[in-house]
Design a protein around this nucleic acid. Structure first.
Lengths: 220, 220
DNA sequence: CCATAAAGTTTGAGTCGTCAAACTTTAGTT
DNA sequence: AACTAAAGTTTGACGACTCAAACTTTATGG
């Protein structure tokens, strides 16, 4: 059984690989994500490589092996089911839930996880719209395109918020943007560095390009 | 904030002190409870003493200080609320729940704990009948007498099972004995080494003295 | 009252995960 | 091609927690 620390590294590597165009995770970003120095990250990567959970050519990017990916999806499943529980059953705040799940995800037996999943009605996505991997390790990825990729006049439905940062989530929630909400792309600035949405029966919101790129939507 | 390990030692010391007539915990029993060697327990006790969480005169028993007791009750509160959740909401088995709560109790923020407590309707006891300490650290102790202390003919109501051993709990549950169940003391053997109960609208059960001493009841 | 078992302590060593700081490699300028 | 900043690695050390095994103290019962 992978230790809590190992699980955290693996999960971070998974997320970073998903985010980066090269499909590899860098040591510096990884260290940052896990909250350690880069030296520490390097030595942990070595240990992970020794246990065949990652591939890490020297002075190059890190990727997960099949075994590593399996662990990552398992952790992610636990994480997202817990987040769903915290929001939909305990009514905790959308934005606060990530850190809490971060700790709980390592303390849940398979059996309890399954009971929880059952209790929640076997949800397919968490409150951020992130898909919940199945028990057998399958995930639906890319259920939408970045908001920044839509043109003026598009009628869209938000599907996913791809960031766990509290401040960002608070801002997004405040704007009324969350999964399943519908909106109209009212304007796209000339330089394409901002986008204005009109939320159905709500106010307008202007998002920077970087914000818009972290919110996924699809045509209604 | 006390580490997970420290919390486990403190909780074990609390429980052992409650159990022992002298009100003190022995190193060997403590080591056994926590699952380490006695040498390890000794050195941890030293650390706990240095942080003023326990009093431990050399070559003598360990007791908690006020600070230590506060932590113990806090951990116990978390533990018992989680057990209640696992049994009453997720329908997990009474006997399986202890180990699970053991892990989860260290990963719950005060806020989430309170939401969970609220969700459960602020229960006063857990599924074993153990009282849940209040958020301010108060506990109702001794809500009943050992079954072994009742005389033939007594009509009793089970209030608490004072053991976390899986096998014992399975046996007790199988006999239909759990908190709030009513029974009649049908017979007490001459030597007082066994007791026979007739559970209301159920079958009769014979308990050894040691089993009966771990089940608390009160007169109906 | 003293031998001895049980309880408790000490010591030396090991693992895990971490840091700071010195070092090496890579990759992007000019 | 040479310089340099950024990325990655190595080293030595540390704290938390653990063990096994040797040791000391306490309690007990013959």
């Amino acid at each position: 059984m992978a230790s809590e620390t190992v699980e955290n590294y693996i999960k971070a590597i998974y997320v970073l690989c998903r985010e980066s165009p090269s499909g590899e995770a860098g040591v510096v970003r990884l260290a940052q994500e896990v909250g350690v120095t880069k030296g520490t990250a390097t030595s942990m990567i070595k240990r992970l490589a020794k246990s065949k959970l990652v591939k890490a050519p020297r002075y190059s990017g890190v990727t997960l092996t099949a075994m590593g990916k399996k662990i990552a999806l398992d952790v992610l499943r636990r994480h997202r089911i817990i987040e769903t529980f915290l929001v939909s059953t305990l009514n905790l705040d959308w934005a606060d839930v990530h850190e809490e799940a971060e700790r709980l995800e390592h303390a849940l037996s398979p059996r309890t996880l399954d009971r929880l999943d059952e209790f929640l009605g076997r949800p397919s996505t968490d409150p951020h719209g992130d898909p919940i991997p199945s028990a057998s390790g399958k995930v639906l990825e890319l259920r939408g395109k970045a908001l920044s990729a839509f043109a003026r006049g598009a009628k869209v439905e938000i599907v996913q918020i791809m960031d766990q940062d509290r401040a960002f989530l608070k801002f997004v929630a405040q704007s009324g943007l969350k999964p399943r909400v519908r909106a109209l792309v009212q304007d796209v600035s000339a330089q394409g560095d901002s986008i204005t949405l009109r939320v159905t029966r709500g106010k307008s919101v202007t998002l920077s390009r970087s914000a818009a790129s972290k919110i996924l939507a699809r045509l209604q």
